[in-house]
Simulated assay, not measured.
Amino acid sequence: MLSRRLFLKSSALIGCSAAAHPMLSSIAFATAPGENRLVVIILRGAMDGLDVFQPYGDPALRKLRKTLSAGPDVGAHDLDGFFALHPSLAGLMPLWRAGELAFAPAVSTPYRDKRSHFDGQDMLEAGTGTDLEAKRQRDGWLNRLLQGMPGVQSETAYSVGLDDMRILDGAAPAKSWAPQTRFRLSAQGQRLLTHVWHDDPLFRPAGEQAIEIINEGLDKIETEAGPTREAQALARFAAGRLNGETRIATFSISGWDSHARQPQIIDRALQRLSAAILTLRGDLGANWSRTTVLAMTEFGRTVRENGTGGTDHGTGGAMLVAGGNIRGGRAIGGWPGLGEGELYAGRDLMPLRDIRAHAAWALRDLFDIPPDVLERSVFPGLDMGENPRILA
C-alpha cells in the first residue's frame, strides 16, 4: 500500500494538501462484545459545518456569507427554526424526521491556530489534547479503546485506497483494498503463487492480501455508477461486516477543502456522505436500530467567505450523528453566536465543546466503558463533562 509519506513526495501539485484530497479513503474494523455498533467516518479536508448545518436564525450569518447558501429561502431544509440542512443532504431529511439524525454544532478538537490538515487529522485520530502529543502518540483512539475493552478481538483492518487510518493505528494487523480492485486468479494459480512467495518476507504479505480479497469477493461489491460510487462501496463493505461479528467500523471520506468554489466542492462531498449513510441504513437492515454513526472532521472553516467563493481553515466545526439508536432530530449542545466579540480570534466559530467528549460519551453508552478509562487512556487528558445523551 502506498504510504502517506511516499504519496506526498510524488504529489506536489494536488492542491492545498494531500490530506484533503478527495481520492484518499480508508476503512478498518474490530469485533466487540454485545450488539451495539459504532461507525466513525473521518471527513478529511475540514468540512464547513456552517454550510452543512446552516444557522440561518443567527442574524450575523448573512452579513458574513453573502453568496453561500444560508437558510430555507435559498433551498436549504429547515430543521428547527434556527438551523437548516444543506440542500445536498436532502436525502437525510427522513432520518431527521425519524429521530435518526442529529448534529453537534460548535465543536472541535483542542487543535488551535496552526490550521494544518495533517496536524489536525493526526490530533483528531490520535485523540490527544495537543498536536505535540499527537506526534508522540503511536496509536489512535479507537485502537486504545479496543485495548481497554474486555472480550475484544481485533479483526484484520483494511485500509482502502491510498491513505493510512491513524485512528486505528496500533497492534492490530492491517491490510489494503481499493473499491476499483479487480483480480482474476484460479485456485491452481493461487497455490502456485503461495509456493513462490512463501519464503519472501516482502512479497508474501501482499500476496496473501490479494488472495484474501479474491476469496472474500471484496472486488465484486456492487454499487451504482457515479460520483458516490466509492462512498457506497465503503459503506456496503462496512455494513456487510457489521451484519456479522464486527461491531466497530471506521472509514474516511475526503474532498472537504473548499477554499474556492465552495458550493461545487461541498455539494460533491455531501453527496458522498449522504450516499454512505443511506447505504449503511439500507444494508444494515434491523441492525441499523443498534448502530451509531459519528462523522467527524479535523477543524471547521472561517465564518466569513473569502474572495473566491470559498472559506479558509478555521476552528469550530460540526459533528454529524446518525443511527437507529440515537436521540435525533435535534442540535446537540449550545450555540456561541456569530456576532462581533463572539468569534474565535475574530474569524472562526467559537468551539463550545471538545468533540472528543461527544465521542467519549457515545463509547460510554454504547460499550459501557468506564469514564476514567476514556479520560485517561482513550482520550488522554479529556474532561468528559456532562453527558450529551447522544443515544436514545
Rank of each mutant, 00 (worst) to 15 (best):
E212F: 11
G34R: 14
R301G: 01
A12K: 14
G226I: 03
R301N: 02
R241P: 00
V107M: 11
C16Q: 13
L294P: 08
A126H: 04
R4P: 11
L89A: 09
S254N: 12
D113M: 05
M384Y: 09
A134G: 02
P351H: 06
A359L: 09
G285Q: 05
R356W: 10
D312V: 01
R327S: 15
A275P: 00
T311A: 04
L79R: 11
K175G: 08
A171G: 10
G140L: 07
R281L: 04
V160H: 01
H313S: 02
M93Q: 02
L6H: 09
G385Y: 11
N36E: 13
E216Y: 03
R166E: 02
L38Y: 15
L101M: 08
E305W: 09
Y344G: 00
Q54A: 14
H259W: 05
S25R: 15
A318P: 14
R356H: 12
A260C: 07
G189A: 15
D200P: 00
G337E: 00
P87D: 03
P55S: 06
P94C: 06
R327F: 08
I41W: 15
F379W: 09
L85I: 04
F83D: 10
L8F: 13
L92W: 06
R37A: 01
L50I: 09
A19W: 13
S289D: 14
S252V: 12
F103T: 11
A98T: 10
A76E: 00
A392P: 06
A225Y: 02
A46P: 04
E216F: 04
F183C: 05
A345M: 14
R37G: 01
H259A: 02
L343G: 01
G120H: 04
A106S: 15
R236L: 10
D131E: 13
Q147G: 14
R182P: 07
D267P: 00
F29M: 06
D267E: 15
A275T: 03
L92E: 11
G341Y: 05
S252N: 12
T109F: 01
V196E: 08
A70I: 04
P179L: 02
A60F: 10
S26R: 10
E305C: 08
A269E: 01
I42P: 05
E208R: 07
E212W: 14
L95D: 13
G329V: 05
A18I: 15
D164F: 00
F83S: 05
A275I: 00
D119V: 10
G148L: 13
L193C: 03
R301W: 04
I213N: 03
G328W: 11
L142G: 11
T297I: 04
Q232R: 03
G385F: 08
A76N: 02
W96C: 00
G140C: 08
Q190K: 13
T311K: 04
H77I: 15
I27K: 02
G328H: 14
L391D: 07
N243I: 00
A231S: 04
L320H: 08
V196Q: 13
D372N: 05
G170F: 12
F251R: 10
D78K: 02
E298T: 03
P227N: 01
K63N: 12
Y111T: 01
V39W: 05
A60Y: 14
F367S: 05
G317D: 02
N306T: 12
A233G: 08
Q262I: 03
G217N: 10
G81I: 11
